[in-house]
Design a protein around this nucleic acid. Sequence first.
DNA 1: GCGATTCCTTAACAAAGTCTTAAAGTATAT
DNA 2: ATATACTTTAAGACTTTGTTAAGGAATCGC
Lengths: 239, 239
Amino acid sequence: MAARFRSSSLFFIPMENSKGHTILIVDDEPDILEFLSYNIRKEGYKVYVASNGQEALRIVQQINPSLILLDVMMPVMDGVETCQIIRKDLNLNQPIIAFLTARTEDYAQIAGFEAGADDYINKPIRPRLLLSKIESLLRRIKSTDQMANSSIVIDRDRFIVVLNGETLTLPKKEFELLELLASRPGKVFNRDQILAVVWGNETVVGERTIDVHIRKLREKLGDDYIRTIKGVGYTFKDK
Amino acid sequence: MAARFRSSSLFFIPMENSKGHTILIVDDEPDILEFLSYNIRKEGYKVYVASNGQEALRIVQQINPSLILLDVMMPVMDGVETCQIIRKDLNLNQPIIAFLTARTEDYAQIAGFEAGADDYINKPIRPRLLLSKIESLLRRIKSTDQMANSSIVIDRDRFIVVLNGETLTLPKKEFELLELLASRPGKVFNRDQILAVVWGNETVVGERTIDVHIRKLREKLGDDYIRTIKGVGYTFKDK
DNA sequence: GCGATTCCTTAACAAAGTCTTAAAGTATAT
DNA sequence: ATATACTTTAAGACTTTGTTAAGGAATCGC
């Protein structure tokens, strides 16, 4: 399998400062809490901690985190239950939830997904992997958030796009390109920005590659959604 | 059995904050009836009880429940027979039926899925699990009027999958893979997630191992259940 | 324990689908 | 008018997944 050019460090941070997010870490082991919060804070995120589910629930209500890293095995209230409760709470701005699991806890992971988790992270945790995972998880928030009152729904979980009631399954690159553009309707993304986010900074592709993908998207969405600003870039237009 | 009528039928006035669904519980053990109805009522459902199949049939005609929890082993008329009768009765608004089974009962004996059951619930019953199952079953009502019978039941305890009435016994890896995918229908699981959950992060296996297992599953389930999202992962049929 | 059976993984090749490129066409601004 | 930037098309390179068979590992029944 080819090397992944996933989100490592970007020279160039697209949209708003991606570090403006609040992350809640929940684990009953103080060592892990400290280890994780140190590493994540170092990257510039706001970090809160809790050592069991009940505590976590209290904090969630107060700080409204973007992402929760949730240990599965905890006293008082375990991760799965905590997750279920959060998912049912319609007053909450639903955070992204990733479980922390030990490799041996077979069914915990499945239970976790079932309870509404978005991802899992296996212990022992390697900081660099964790951080790149956090970054890619947080990328979702922008798309789901910003488009609250839009006619297009982009579901990264299901990898589908719903437009005017029609459901589309797009190839990966097209999906990611659309996701980027639609994450901020009206904003003009230039080619460098698009390349950095969709292709990654390390990848080098020809001049016309973006255009072709835009073309494919227009073919599928209709010509009314993506507008070209000549000499500048592309923008997603919400009706 | 003397005490059965105490908690039976029309006596209980549903709570005000009722979720709008009526649930009938059928079991010959008064303790279980009480335990279940207490827990389910607490969540705001309208609950009726019966202690055998005949009684259940009478009540079903009167109250038209959304969901029936039906014990398999009962005197007078067992669960399977009761289920068959309900399914044949075209005058009824077909309810969702879930069997209550002891973990030790043999599947061949139960054979309830051919009788038209939608799910089973293993005893001993854990209230929280039960409630989340009830919720997910009731969710079907709205969404699944069309695809009447294409439900899947996964029995973790017995490594058995029941698909459209057919019972399959899957090998461990295939079972776990299917279990993961089916835990969140529609969600796309990527290869990393699949590897970590089914194989464990430690294990290193070749590139084609997952595909081969997917293949085996498709061989057994048919090609309509697991979809490939190329470059992204696999997803279990939604809807 | 032992043989028989089933399961898991690998490897090699096939097939499918995606991405990129090149090349020619079109629009737009100066 | 001309240069520049984008559009469009189609081909084929490239990547990812599908398929098959075979051998070793694990498991079952006795």
